[in-house]
Design a binder for these strands. Structure first.
Length: 744
DNA sequence: GCGTTACATATTTTT
DNA sequence: TATGTAACGC
């Protein structure tokens, strides 16, 4: 090991535990760090970079560090600056997408777009899919744009080109055609989508050995955060970038992989071990966040997932308080319980608002909480939900600006060509597209020509007089903005000019409160534009595309935080409430039929549990309203896995209604030592069910819903799934092991 | 071309 | 329940 100790008066790593230290000072080659929650993962990454620079003499220029979020990137840069001072400027540290965008802009001459390409966000992607469906004369009822987009996204994340999409049925063939058309539309617009950033980067490096060599030689060390969330494209990218020096240092935790639906594949951790058998593997198991009770509960839950590296987290913080399990009568009572409990806590310690977090599976669950907070007069902070950049007015303004930068951007053009309404309707729009296609230009270019040349434009006669005039007006406006931009009009001035010429304020401000809000959002965006005075329009647009709302949240408000379990990843709070612990919500009903999805729900719960430093509240409601109507629900199956002695039960009487609880302790005892991986989802303590007990047309009685008739029943995951029509509540799908149905 | 009403639809959302 | 989209009439 290298020791440049002459410069260091004492052991510079004395503040690290042995595993952390081993990771930070690991030698060359591939290194896999499996870091449990709260084990100091970010610290290890930043200390590792500092170590490379300070102790091994690696130039910052030769280091690439990638994260998933801008927030994580910012945090690492901040810590590095503290450790190293100004030396950090040369190193590349950013999100996967930002890093790829950077590479693609530099290497655009190898690619089918120019370096001023725009980046399409999720909304744009869906709009693009709709366009593709329309162009292909496909029914968007039959082929849902969202589903098509997901299929395309999946393909791209797995580096599958349209021609390579496997076609097992007609639907797949449709997907291929939509994917092809979608890709054409993107390139016509000189655009890439989020997934393309990764896919094009991989193709660039794969197809051009010289380019690959240049980057691979440059990056002596590649470091990756949240490795469990990588998709195939990202995995390949890392491989390509480290083909020369082979120094790939990845940090992650399979148990915290919660973005499967975005293409993330935690099995990349396993693949990494297979691809690099010589890789060093280091487990970080000391937790600096939670009490032992919290960790034990979390372990009891996560140990039931298969295909993972077993870990046993420990803490020096002591046993701590029991976990409080509360069952409310309904969802209103659930919210009231949470708010009351927080209020009591605040009475004791009024400054502790920021200690609390309330986590839930779906955003819809925040509504009742908000109402309860409002009623009690307590302030709160809501994460996510209404997204600034998703706001109509914000998207409109961005679309105008994107057109200035890139008139070929068809999605933006379609968005704002008639905003505010200026008499350009469907008919005119179709004519414009037709004229553009005939002239082999983009609609935006035709529009600009109309704007510049008016009735002398060769395209003028393609439209009815009124349509042509309207288009020319808008074209002239856009053309004027482009000239101003070329003449280096500062960004805020351009922004104002767009606002005034489109008469946007009058369009937005209708005297309503909502209108005032919208105008305020516009002002907010203008403020941001002001910050980009120096860097200019292109940098502004890139930032808008690659920075999420989560990054713009006001930090450090000393109030309880309301957020989804997904949004909670990476955060920690003294007191954590996880609400909605009911079958159908957590785990979500959408994951019922897929064991992989179910395992992910379990990880999601695990992430929530491990956010708590001191006190954990698990809350459920026996009855809750979904879309208007009220339904009864069973307790979440995950609750059964937490042993009784870690819990303190409150609310409605449990034990009589919930015999499964009693078995949890035994199960925990029997699996805790041999916690090892085998335990599969659905492996209950009772004997596995192999034959269905219920048959169609049988009459059954349920303790809550009364009598009903069995429609269907099948064995699944060693349990029985029964579909029943109840006289009281209609159709229900039940797990036989939980529902305690009685055959009449 | 635009505004109204009926109707379907409904997780999570790092970039 | 609430929201966004599609069809309809002006």
């Amino acid at each position: 090991m290298v020791q440049s100790s002459s410069a260091m008066p004492q052991d510079p790593f004395s503040h690290l535990n042995p595993q952390q230290r081993q990771a930070v000072t690991a030698g060359l080659g591939q290194v896999l760090v499996l870091a449990g929650p709260g084990s100091g993962k970010t610290r290890v990454l930043t200390e590792r970079i500092a170590y490379l620079i300070r102790s091994l003499g690696v130039r910052p220029y030769g280091i690439l560090a990638v994260t998933f979020t801008n927030k994580a990137a910012r945090e690492m840069i901040g810590r590095l600056e503290k450790l190293l001072g100004e030396q950090v400027s040369d190193l590349w540290l950013g999100t996967f997408h930002a890093t790829c965008a950077r590479i693609l802009r530099r290497e655009a001459n190898y690619l089918p777009f120019t370096s001023s390409f725009v980046i399409m966000d999720a909304d744009d992607q869906e709009a693009l899919v709709k366009r593709a469906l329309k162009d292909l004369n496909l029914d968007d009822k039959l082929y849902r744009p969202a589903a098509m987009q997901a299929a395309i996204s999946n393909a791209k994340n797995s580096l599958v080109l349209p021609k390579d999409v496997p076609t097992r049925n007609y639907r797949d063939e449709v997907i291929v055609r939509v994917y092809e058309r979608y890709q054409e539309l993107l390139l016509n617009s000189n655009a890439v989508d989020f997934d393309d950033l990764l896919m094009w980067a991989v193709r660039l490096l794969e197809d051009n050995p010289a380019v690959r060599e240049r980057y691979a030689r440059r990056f002596q060390h590649v470091l990756v955060d949240e490795f469990q969330d990588t998709n195939l494209a990202q995995y390949q990218l890392l491989g390509l970038l480290s083909t020369y020096h082979h120094n790939l240092f990845v940090v992650g935790d399979e148990d915290q992989s919660i973005y499967r639906w975005r293409g993330a594949d935690y099995r990349n951790v396993l693949r990494f071990e297979e691809d690099f058998p010589e890789a060093q593997k280091i487990l970080l198991e000391q937790n600096y966040r939670s009490t032992q009770n919290v960790l034990d509960a979390a372990r009891a839950v996560i140990d039931r997932n298969p295909y993972r590296t077993p870990k046993s987290l420990f803490t020096e913080r002591g046993q701590g308080e029991k976990i409080i399990l509360y069952e409310a009568v309904d969802d209103h009572a659930e919210a009231a319980y949470v708010v009351d409990t927080i209020r009591l806590g605040l009475e004791r310690n009024p400054k502790a608002g920021g200690d609390f977090a309330v986590m839930y599976r779906t955003n819809a669950q925040s509504r009742l909480l908000e109402e309860a907070f409002l009623r009690s007069g307590l302030p709160y902070r809501l994460v996510g939900a209404q997204r600034f950049y998703g706001r109509r007015e914000v998207k409109d303004l961005i679309a105008f600006l994107r057109l200035v930068a890139n008139p070929s951007d068809e999605i933006s053009l379609n968005r704002v060509i008639n905003v505010p309404p200026r008499g350009i309707g469907d008919k005119t729009l179709v004519a414009l597209q037709l004229a553009a296609r005939q002239a082999n230009l983009s609609p935006g270019e035709v529009l600009l020509d109309l704007g510049r040349n008016g009735d002398r434009s060769p395209y003028w006669k393609a439209f009815g007089g009124r349509g042509a005039a309207m288009l020319a007006d808008f074209g002239a406006m856009l053309s004027g903005w482009r000239e101003a931009q070329a003449g280096e009009l500062p960004l805020p001035a351009l922004f104002d000019r767009v606002l005034s010429e489109t008469v946007y304020q009058e369009y937005i401000e209708d005297g309503s409160e909502e209108g005032a809000d919208r105008w305020e959002n516009v002002q907010e965006l203008r403020k941001l534009a002001y910050e980009y005075m120096e860097r200019g329009l292109t940098a502004f647009l890139e930032n808008l595309a690659l920075v999420s709302d989560q990054d713009t949240l006001p930090e450090q408000v000393n109030a309880p935080t309301l957020l989804t379990l997904h949004a909670a990843k990476g955060l920690e709070f003294n007191q954590v409430f996880i609400i909605g612990l009911d079958e159908g919500l957590l785990p979500h009903s959408r994951s019922r039929d897929d064991p992989e999805e179910m395992a992910e729900e379990r990880r999601l719960f695990y992430v929530g549990l491990t956010r708590a430093r001191n006190q954990l509240y698990l809350v459920r409601a026996r009855q809750r309203s979904t879309y208007g109507s009220s339904e009864y629900s069973e307790p979440s199956r995950f609750l059964e896995d937490i042993p009784d002695f870690l819990l303190s039960m409150q609310g409605i009487q449990y034990s009589s209604r919930w015999p499964a609880r009693r078995e949890a302790y035994q199960r925990w005892e029997s699996t805790s030592q041999a916690s090892l991986s085998r335990a599969s989802e659905g492996e209950r303590s009772r004997a596995a069910i192999l034959e269905p007990r219920y048959r169609p047309a049988m009459r059954v009685r349920h303790p809550v819903w009364g009598e009903g008739m069995v429609l269907d029943s099948r064995v699944q995951d060693e349990d029985e799934t029964v579909d029943v029509i109840f006289e009281s509540v209609g159709f229900k799908r039940l797990m036989a092991s939980l529902a305690r149905l009685e055959i009449i």
